[in-house]
């Protein structure tokens, strides 16, 4: 089995372009059982017959499950890369590596550095690519397959997540996961994902996708957890929950006045809100029923 890294063509420029149109994802996926073991095996001269794409290897390697594949066309259009040359070390070599035209003879350390730069470059281009029409649809497919995981919040009932960054600048915050149902952000479960830079997804992508595909917006649920002790609500959290429900009702009233669909599961039902109010009143009069750890 030829090592992974030797599959990156070094001698034959543009060889793969003969076989595959750039728009189609490559049919052959790498199988990489010996990936880690051969990291420094860069210089071995074995040639391979694989249609080799650095990007293909990158997105299929472990830990990079959140990334989608960037089209060749997008990468080769210099306009899309504006400003990245100052952000990435060895920009030109890194770009060559990403586009599979890398043919520099250099030592292992150098290759390692360039490889790192290439990954960084790919991430930064990725943040731009996923807000394009094609990028959005690729990420949509992954979202539908729940490739980014599911919301850990019990009331969200395993709603699929979307990756996001809290900053558009690299090396600030790691990637987080956004749940469209509770509109909150969560840390990835696995440590191999929590090491990914959030800037590789950006602060806007997960909001843009719902503007482009409004049908994807999940119905919001007012269901929530209420702390109880032997069936009785606990006074302090219950008071906070009542206050939060007040905020929610204000929001719904505002939206109703503007005739905007609020998107809640029980929307349009004025009754629903009335019963909530009643509930609140009942709670209010039965406050003795709450366990108050009174000081």
């Amino acid at each position: 089995m030829p090592s992974l890294l030797t599959q990156i063509p070094k001698h034959t420029k543009y060889r793969h372009r003969l076989h595959l149109p750039a728009q189609d994802p490559p049919a052959v996926r790498y199988i990489l059982p010996i990936q880690a073991a051969n990291m420094d095996d860069f210089n071995s001269e074995t040639d391979s017959d694989y249609a080799s794409y650095w990007r293909d290897w990158f997105i299929s390697s472990r830990g990079n499950e959140y990334f989608c594949e960037i089209d060749e066309d997008y990468l080769t259009d210099r306009f899309n890369l504006t400003g990245l040359n100052t952000e990435v070390q060895y920009y030109q070599y890194a770009l060559d590596l990403v586009t599979d035209v890398f043919d520099l003879d250099c030592d292992d350390d150098m290759r390692e550095t360039i490889e790192k730069s290439a990954r960084h470059l790919y991430g930064l281009v990725h943040a731009r690519y996923i807000v394009t029409t094609r990028g959005l649809s690729k990420m949509l497919d992954k979202y539908k397959k729940a490739d980014f995981g599911k919301c850990p919040r019990v009331m969200c009932k395993s709603h699929p997540l979307l990756p996001m960054g809290q900053s558009d600048n690299p090396n600030v915050k790691a990637v987080k996961l956004y749940c469209a149902r509770c509109e909150d952000i969560y840390n990835p479960k696995s440590s191999r994902h929590s090491a990914i830079d959030g800037a590789y997804f950006g602060t806007s992508f997960h909001n843009i996708i719902f503007q482009v595909y409004p049908a994807l917006i999940p119905t919001k649920s007012t269901e929530r957890y209420i702390p109880r002790i032997y069936g009785f609500k606990v006074h302090a959290p219950a008071a906070l929950i009542r206050w939060q429900n007040g905020e929610k009702d204000d929001l719904r009233k505002r939206l109703r006045k503007l005739e905007i669909d609020s998107g809640f599961a029980d929307d349009g039902e004025i009754d629903a809100e009335d019963t909530e109010d009643e509930d609140a009143m009942i709670e209010g009069t039965q406050e003795g029923g709450e366990i108050a750890n009174q000081a």
Binding site: R181, C182, E183, D184, T203, S204, N207, I208, F210, Q211, P214, I217, K220, R224, Q244, N245, E247, K248, L251, R254, L255, L258, I260, D261, S262, G263, F264
Partner: peptide, 19 residues
């Protein structure tokens, strides 16, 4: 989106802040 808050008037706007 690009640094601008999404308005709650948008259909995709925030709805769950109260939580």
């Amino acid at each position: 989106i690009y640094g601008f808050k999404v308005s709650e008037r948008a259909r995709s706007g925030p709805r769950m802040g109260w939580l």
